[in-house]
Design a protein around this nucleic acid. Structure first.
Lengths: 228, 228
DNA sequence: AAATAGAGTGTAAACATAACACTTAAATTC
DNA sequence: GAATTTAAGTGTTATGTTTACACTCTATTT
């Protein structure tokens, strides 16, 4: 028994803008739609909300279905509710964006869904209002990555300062000065310098670092803020 | 005929966080709920989405019902979708915030809805997750007001620099330096200084200004940004 | 032993932000 | 009509932040 009988009811979808990063740059996980309408067209991963789950839960479920990953950094972007946005039927979509480390995702599962990592700069025409969602997600990512330590979610647990810098350069789409970048990130004192070195990308080897949640909280509680 | 039969369908609400400003400070337009559940409790103004309207249209309709105002600055905050958020039934709510000039609102209409302007600092316990919406709305307002010229929507067309400063102080909840504030806002060259003076608040009188959209666009196109 | 390739490091100039106090104009009061 | 009141209006200096910039180091490969 409901208190709100007599009002229109709607299908609700969640769509996921899934960001990844590797040497080539910032990428999105997109798929070719396997059902009508718009079968065969490029699309974001999506799914319909179920009665017993929250929007956040639905987004996490949809993301896990595609990538096999749990406990991923996700954030709701906005709800998209234009009348004609989905020609299949009236659907309100809550768009979420996720930041993942590409290497963590389940390759087999991704392939099974006919999904592909596409360089952000090369994102094709997507169905419905998905391109608009993607553009807004990037804006949000840029703003948040500049003021909160969320970019680390795009990297492996351990990373070099050069990798970290490349990640931010890919997100902001402009180059950063190496010395200024290192000064800034190290002065905030949120990174832990490890004994280990990464030998992949240079002969000399570069020290590995990891983000330290505790140090970040200390920074905040002394009244400072994170900022790149 | 739908392509998406078999999926759960939901009631969708829009809830409006309506900001206003006057000499006393930043205020919210809240109402005492006139229907079950939670009848008599403080609440945001809300309404249910209709089949033939977009989310944005629904929010504008709900706001107009309460205030009589059209073409108001409104922005979607987020969709709130926790399972138990509304004990009346499962409802997904898209929260919108609006910035209006209190004096423009239709007093009779506001009273008819049993709505009241409440100082932000004195906002009572609200139903459901409405307090959470309000807190997020203020955060968003603060961030956006600091980087985009949206604060003017809280003021009358013509305003003095002191009024403008008071408005920003109310939004940010901290005092600003008069000389620095004036230097900054005038240097951006987005205000038009009028011949008229306001004689209400001082014996000497203070020049009135208005925000000039064209000047703002010029500022942006020369690569600068708005910022307080 | 020489060459290579990326890692790692400091300073100075330019710019932006923050702190600060008195004079002016008009109305009101005595 | 002189004195008082009230908010409006106005610049400069110190401090902090951001930007620009080039060479040495280390380990591997040739």
């Amino acid at each position: 028994m409901t208190h709100y009988s007599g009002y229109d009811r709607f299908n609700i979808a969640v769509d996921c803008i899934i960001f990844g990063f590797d040497n080539e740059g910032l990428k999105l996980l997109l798929l070719k739609r396997s059902f009508e309408p718009a079968k065969g067209k490029w699309s974001l991963m999506g799914g319909f909300l179920k009665e017993e789950e929250s929007l956040d839960d639905a987004a996490a479920r949809v993301l896990e279905n595609l990538t096999g990953l749990q406990n991923v950094y996700m954030e709701q972007l906005a709800a998209f509710g234009d009348v004609g946005r989905d020609p299949g039927d009236r659907v309100i979509s809550a768009a979420y964006f996720a930041l993942i480390n590409i290497d963590d995702s389940d390759r087999a599962l991704v392939e099974k869904h006919n999904a592909h990592w596409v360089l952000f700069k090369e994102v094709p025409d997507l169905i419905f209002d998905h391109n608009a969602m993607v553009i807004r997600a990037l804006k949000r990512l840029r703003r948040k990555a500049a003021t909160e330590p969320i970019g680390f979610n795009l990297l492996p647990e351990k990373f070099t300062l050069t990798q970290l810098q490349r990640m931010y350069e890919a997100v902001f789409q402009h180059e950063l000065d190496k010395r200024n970048f290192r000064k800034k990130i190290l002065q905030m004192n949120v990174l832990e310098k490890l004994e280990e070195k990464d030998k992949e990308s240079s002969k000399r080897g570069a020290y590995l670092y990891c983000f330290n949640e505790q140090k970040y909280h200390d920074l905040i509680s002394e009244g400072s803020t994170f900022g790149i």
